[in-house]
């Protein structure tokens, strides 16, 4: 019974979502919105679980003092400051919470995003080494696309931007579409397995 009830719920929910795609009539037309609303409500309550877990894990780390335990102090302090700032003074524009968001949180997020530039450089260095014919092909097409998309490319040869566009519009697009078709079929197959209860790993089924 412990497994049957979740399977029945999954089957009904899955079939309802499939049907609502083909049946525009009410109540089917409203079901997707209804399910989305339920999901949002569950997500909000699940946030409590998430926060509880976060606080529990890092409090334990402070007690056990494993390697890098002081980071937990930073996390808990950051959490407490933002939480208190939001609860006491609100989150509107001009509040202390707003100040922290724009002057601490956002710059740190931007910094993480900016790191991407360095990671792209290091990854490109590895990827573009012409060790195999495929890697050489990748290297050549990457150089053509990159140079073709900056003013320098046009300066070197005015047809380079066209070559770059051709690579992006045809070989690249064809590859992406092939992947997308595979993904769509994979989603159908996985959905069917879950709806029909064939895939039940999440229920401890083999």
């Amino acid at each position: 019974m412990k497994k049957q009830i979740p399977l029945i719920i999954t089957f009904i929910a899955g079939m309802v979502m499939v049907l609502q795609f083909f049946i525009p009539h009410r109540p089917f037309s409203d079901l997707q919105q209804l399910f989305n609303s339920w999901f949002l409500i569950i997500t909000v309550f699940a946030m409590i679980l998430g926060l509880g877990n976060l606080l529990k894990v890092h409090t334990k780390r402070l007690q056990r003092k494993p390697k890098g335990w002081w980071y937990s102090i930073v996390l808990l302090a950051g959490f407490a400051i933002m939480f208190i700032a939001g609860m006491v003074w609100g989150i509107e524009r001009g509040t202390f919470f707003d100040f922290l968001f724009w002057n601490v949180h956002l710059p740190m997020s931007s910094m993480m995003f900016a790191l991407l530039a360095f990671f792209v450089a290091s990854a490109s260095y590895r990827a573009f080494r012409a060790r195999t014919p495929e890697a050489t092909l990748l290297l050549i097409s990457a150089i053509l696309v990159m140079i073709g998309r900056v003013p320098l490319g046009n300066y070197i040869w005015d047809k380079l931007p066209l070559v770059s566009d051709w690579i992006m519009s045809y070989p690249n697009m064809a590859g992406q579409r092939a992947i997308m078709i595979g993904i769509a079929l994979g989603i159908v197959s996985t959905s069917l397995r879950i709806i029909l209860g064939i895939e039940r790993t999440y229920l401890s089924g083999k």
């Binding site: 197959s189 397995r193 064939i198």
Partner: peptide, 26 residues
Amino acid sequence: LIGEELFAASAYLSKEPLLLGSLKGQ
């Protein structure tokens, strides 16, 4: 794992005939 292989992974790893059958259908 590129695209569809992500969705095939569970069935592939389980080696269960039922799940593998769904891969073949896919």
